[in-house]
């Protein structure tokens, strides 16, 4: 459980970090290290170099305005979770962060690191996709924005290039007519979920549902978002519409078996959680509207 040899640098500017990455196609960025370090120790990854960005200034911000929440590459999960403005502007981010592993891991792990690790069993990638967020990617060639919808292309595979550093993630604010919820089922507290669901429900001023979208983790190769609005075309939520929504969701998912759960059980959980989470998001939507009134 000792990593293979690698070289290590700890640049103190972003340009220096980007130059190091550009110089070595086999180098990896080290931020919180909560996924990378175990992979190194088990020799499942053996990069030639680690570019430790922890000494790069001005990357640990959590900035909030009416548009949304901007999270810097070095902002720890715990810092984002503790930020009251972030919670107010986009409550789904903190709802999901509460379910990311354990406090010790959230103290070191970074939200942006989790996003670009591109694990379909992780909470934050699917939240970013569901909310229509984006990341900012920097390289020696310049800076670009990658929309969440374009970010994930395969298991642990994103469109972030090896010479790029994701410097910031952007989670759009919750619209005034929307409510959110998140839930997941894991074998042990804090484990990767067997299945997790995030939902955004929107309704008009009369309370008639206008849109229902749900994001799924651990039941597909990619963080998957399904538009369930069609099941609520009547504008109301009841057992029948929830059942229809679950049917709709399952048609878009591809749960797989592993040593912890059969595919059938995962599909069952996706069904149960779809109904549970959409109902909660609808309740949240109603509460927010009535709270505003």
């Amino acid at each position: 459980m000792k990593p293979a040899p690698f070289s290590y640098s700890r640049p103190t500017t972003l340009d220096e970090a980007l130059a190091s990455l550009a110089a070595d196609p086999d180098a990896k960025v080290l931020a919180g290290g909560q996924s990378l370090v175990p992979l190194l120790s088990m020799r499942l990854a053996a990069p030639s170099a680690l570019v430790d960005i922890n000494a790069v200034p001005d990357l640990d911000h959590v900035r909030t305005d009416e548009k949304g929440v901007r999270v810097g590459a070095l902002a720890r999960h715990a810092a984002v979770l503790a930020d009251p403005e972030a919670r107010r502007v986009q409550p789904l981010v903190s709802l999901a962060l509460q379910r990311v592993a354990h406090p010790t891991i959230r103290n070191r792990g970074t939200t942006v690191g989790s996003l670009v690790h591109a694990d379909a069993s992780a909470e934050m990638p699917v939240v970013l996709v569901l909310l229509g967020g984006s990341i900012t990617a920097a390289s020696v060639a310049g800076t670009r924005t990658i929309e969440a919808a374009d970010l994930y292309v395969g298991p642990l595979e994103s469109t972030l290039r090896h010479d790029e550093i994701a410097t910031e993630a952007f989670f759009p604010a919750l619209p005034g007519d929307a409510g959110v919820a998140f839930d997941e089922i894991a074998r042990r507290h804090g484990d990767y979920a067997l299945c997790g669901v995030a939902a955004v429900v929107r309704a008009d001023e009369a309370g008639s549902i206008t849109s229902v979208r749900a994001g799924y983790l651990s039941v597909s190769d990619l963080p998957t978002v399904v538009d369930l609005s069609e099941a609520f075309a009547a504008g109301t939520l009841d057992d029948a519409s929830l059942d229809a929504a679950a049917d709709l969701a399952l048609a878009s998912l591809d749960p797989a078996a592993d040593i912890h759960a059969t595919a059938d059980y995962r599909a069952h959980l996706a069904r149960v959680l779809t109904k549970r989470v959409v109902r909660q998001a609808h309740d949240d939507c109603t509460a927010r509207r009535e709270g505003d009134a």
Partner: peptide
């Protein structure tokens, strides 16, 4: 016994 097995 796991939840998945109990479900089955």
């Amino acid at each position: 016994i796991s939840p998945s097995e109990l479900f089955a």
